[in-house]
Design a protein around this nucleic acid. Sequence first.
DNA 1: TTCTATTGTGTAACCGATTACACAAACATA
DNA 2: TATGTTTGTGTAATCGGTTACACAATAGAA
Lengths: 327, 327
Amino acid sequence: MATIKEVAKLAGVSVATVSRVLNDSGYVGAESRKKVEQAIEELEFYPNEVARSLFQKKSKLIGLLLPDIANPFFPLLAKGAEDAVNQLGYSLILGNVQDDVEKEEEYLKIFEQNNIAGVLSAVQGSSKRLKNIPLVNLDRVESFEQYAVHTNDYQGGMLAAQAMADRDPKQVVIMVGPKEVPGSFERLAGSIQIFKERDIAYHLFQTTSFRLEDTDETVELFFKEHPNADSVVASNDVYALAIMREAVKRGINIPDELQIIGYDDMPFSRLTYPGLSTIAQPAYEIGYKGAQLLCNCIENKPVKTKRIQLPVELVLRESLREKVEHE
Amino acid sequence: MATIKEVAKLAGVSVATVSRVLNDSGYVGAESRKKVEQAIEELEFYPNEVARSLFQKKSKLIGLLLPDIANPFFPLLAKGAEDAVNQLGYSLILGNVQDDVEKEEEYLKIFEQNNIAGVLSAVQGSSKRLKNIPLVNLDRVESFEQYAVHTNDYQGGMLAAQAMADRDPKQVVIMVGPKEVPGSFERLAGSIQIFKERDIAYHLFQTTSFRLEDTDETVELFFKEHPNADSVVASNDVYALAIMREAVKRGINIPDELQIIGYDDMPFSRLTYPGLSTIAQPAYEIGYKGAQLLCNCIENKPVKTKRIQLPVELVLRESLREKVEHE
DNA sequence: TTCTATTGTGTAACCGATTACACAAACATA
DNA sequence: TATGTTTGTGTAATCGGTTACACAATAGAA
């Protein structure tokens, strides 16, 4: 890789002039500019970001913290973030945290060591150690002063419950996501409100993690605790599908004997039959908008709102029964 | 963030001594070492990787090139890579290439600009521009001199075809993956060998991409071209599930009227019912082993084999009929 | 014409680490 | 005791950029 010195030499100017051409800063004569551009072309020069980053104390790298990239919600989010970030001249350092606080801390340290320009975080407490590094929370909201892109979990919980309530549920079970996930509580509250309003009884089933490895166990437990469930509001699509599978396996007809609604609208939720009805979360958008917001912060551009709320949406497929009118 | 200078001052030594303590290099007196360690502790100092990287012309970052992170094969691979790399003190820069050659080139440039230590690539031609940067190909094999971790696609193709051939297929259709994906051809060859040996007729159906967005279109085309297919060897799980869904929707019984086998064993392939029979690719392992191999190259450690081949495995679920013996 | 403002360019310090080299002290060996 | 080796430490150069500052040349204003 050629350096700025070599370019300067070939162009017959000083490194300062080359740098000015590169950054379009300060005054550069037409003559010099041309010579420098030619030299750059000839040497196929492109500046070393490490050197730049050292001086500026700020790199073109953005840290992306994910709870678990194997959870199908996050690749989509990552893709959105990557697209946005890439368009704006940044790149992502991937921090897969596996719901492990230590690993999260470790990554925040690594980020700092690399003069990261900002952090996109879909995990809990990332804000602590970072001093002057902008951070945007994705999906999960920490506190109200922080930047965040998220969805209305309360509304999502309501939508799911509403869809269920409209379909003559007999034995409702609401799966509640892990306590540490702030959204879980909101969703639950939304669902409960609807069921209370409609005067429909419900049971709760607490899941302890969103990790893909734990589904089998959880599903087994679910059927043990709620063998007569006829209407399930699941905490995400993975659990919904897992329950659906187990149900079909047991010869329970979906949706006649057991109807179910998921949460997220994972890409593969429409690949099953019966297709999973679910609350669609705009994972890609969350990543994309979050990255845009972060880049605006990084570059001190005016930011309209610190918090962007994206809508969720009911997606009806075959896992819910026909809607009962006049209720 | 404290610097090495501040540590030196607090400890009453020179920066060189601090550096020696940090890197356990050269001679350091017991007295000095203790003072430095105390200062480090007191200032919560950790070295700036950017400065280190500038001098060494080599960072602790590894580039990860993926064709499409939304394709569920790759998050798993990424997770494996991340786990390994992280254990060895490196971090990943995510390069999601979207099957776009330009974006790939762009990322390779970005990687160079960041003094990347090495590249893990699951995309085609990444080797061109890199001069002295080690690269390990994941899943896809380019040429025989290159480092790679991959599976035996030929064998995979055979396994899939064998499973099918053992189950009294009447109308076989083999879905062939995109031509650009080297493995596709191998798998096809493996499958064809089996069907030829068994004297079973088959049709081919060419898919043009592995991108998640294109499934609907492809499945529609598939049923138009092969309405009477009774045994499908799919090019991956996503297509297999998509076809299964469409079939069930059309009232075609799985597996009695149409049996199907996928490829990959995605996490959600076991969440459907009927569960998808498939050829399991060790995506996580590919990433993990690939990252280990790369790190060994980077650190000039002895490498036993340039190419690691991992086994694939037939996973039987409900999408295939019962095996017919005595054939 | 003279003075100031604008334009153009180079020199050198700087970012925060690593390390070659010089030098001194302590130790071992002859 | 003289000499060589090992140990310990600091100074300064270096990595590849950016930019403050100095200075010169030119243009414009008075």
